[in-house]
């Protein structure tokens, strides 16, 4: 290789390094600009009445009380449905059916489900839960729809967490005369709890931000009451934000930005907890 060629490739190398750094900084910068822009537009709008007011035709009197209440109730039912099913399915696929055809088929299926657009889950929920089961556009219909949507996340996280549990633990349990289920329940699941919990929290964070499937199943954009039971109609914070964004008046845009601050705060806190649990769990447990 000639000297000039070597110099040229070193220049290319250097240039690429700076491009790589620039692109990385750019991506981080977009995030920073997004957060700053929203804080500038919405922070002054946040006060106590923003949390306690019902939605209103007047932007200044509008609050997110019903949206927050609806979101919490929706999450409660979603979690109630999705967690047991997701964990049991994940445990089955990793502990019981590792090598059978059924488990392999389900693995492909779950990979596929994880890639289905969320708006399609909305169409599924609309047809099955809202209409066929006659649940209407209720909290329960929304919860079933979201549960199906986050199930793949919980199953995959459970499987990965269980895969990391060393075989020696299981063998020790079997050696003590424990059955497969006793071993699974008392040894395997507790050892994998950190990973499972991380997956659950990330799935909740995903459910918090979902908008499209709920709009499709008919979640309302204007709900002037707090839902009191699973059969009540509801709205959620992202839907309330969407409603405000779609209005031409500047005051509603301010409301939307303020709502987004709260939504982002919830999302970031959930993700922070997930990262914390993951790092703590891996630090404490060394096999």
């Amino acid at each position: 290789m000639s000297k000039s060629n070597q110099r040229k490739s070193r220049i290319v190398d250097k240039t690429f390094k700076y491009i790589g750094l620039a692109f990385t900084v750019f991506a981080l910068l977009v995030l920073a600009v997004l957060i700053t822009d929203i804080l500038i537009k919405g922070l002054t709008r946040i006060n106590w009445s923003f949390f306690t007011n019902l939605p209103s035709r007047h932007a200044a009197n509008s609050g997110i009380l019903t949206a927050l209440a609806g979101m919490l109730s929706l999450l409660f039912f979603t979690i109630l449905i999705a967690i047991p099913i997701g964990i049991l399915a994940g445990v089955y696929l990793q502990e019981y059916g590792t090598n059978n055809k059924f488990a392999k088929f389900i693995e492909i299926n779950i990979a596929n489900l994880a890639g289905v657009p969320s708006v399609i889950y909305g169409i599924l929920g609309l047809t099955i839960f809202v209409r066929l089961f006659g649940l209407g556009n209720s909290l329960l219909a929304g919860a079933f729809t979201l549960a199906l949507l986050i199930l793949p996340i919980i199953i995959v996280a459970t499987r990965e967490a269980i895969r990391a549990v060393p075989g020696t633990l299981r063998e020790a349990s079997y050696g003590m005369g424990a059955t497969k289920w006793q071993t699974t329940r008392r040894v395997v699941i507790p050892s994998a709890l950190g990973g499972i919990l991380t997956g659950i929290i990330l799935s909740i964070s995903r459910a918090v931000g979902e908008t499209a499937p709920l709009l499709v199943i008919g979640a309302l954009v204007y709900v002037p009451f707090i839902p009191e039971g699973p059969n009540d109609q509801f709205t959620t914070l992202p839907i309330q934000i969407f409603n405000w964004v779609s209005r031409p008046q500047a005051a509603f845009i301010t409301n939307a930005a303020a709502g987004i601050i709260i939504l982002l705060l919830i999302t970031f806190i959930l993700n922070g907890i997930a990262i914390y649990i993951r790092s703590k769990w891996y630090k404490n447990i060394k096999y």
Binding site: L28, L31, L34, G209, T211, I241, V245, T267
Partner: peptide
């Protein structure tokens, strides 16, 4: 340090990105 912050980009709810696209 950078990787977890980049992951945040995927965690931001899409309605927020919609607002950002339209308003900024």
């Amino acid at each position: 340090i950078v990787k977890p912050i980049l992951e945040v980009l995927a965690a931001v709810p899409t309605v927020v990105y919609g607002f950002f696209a339209l308003q900024f």
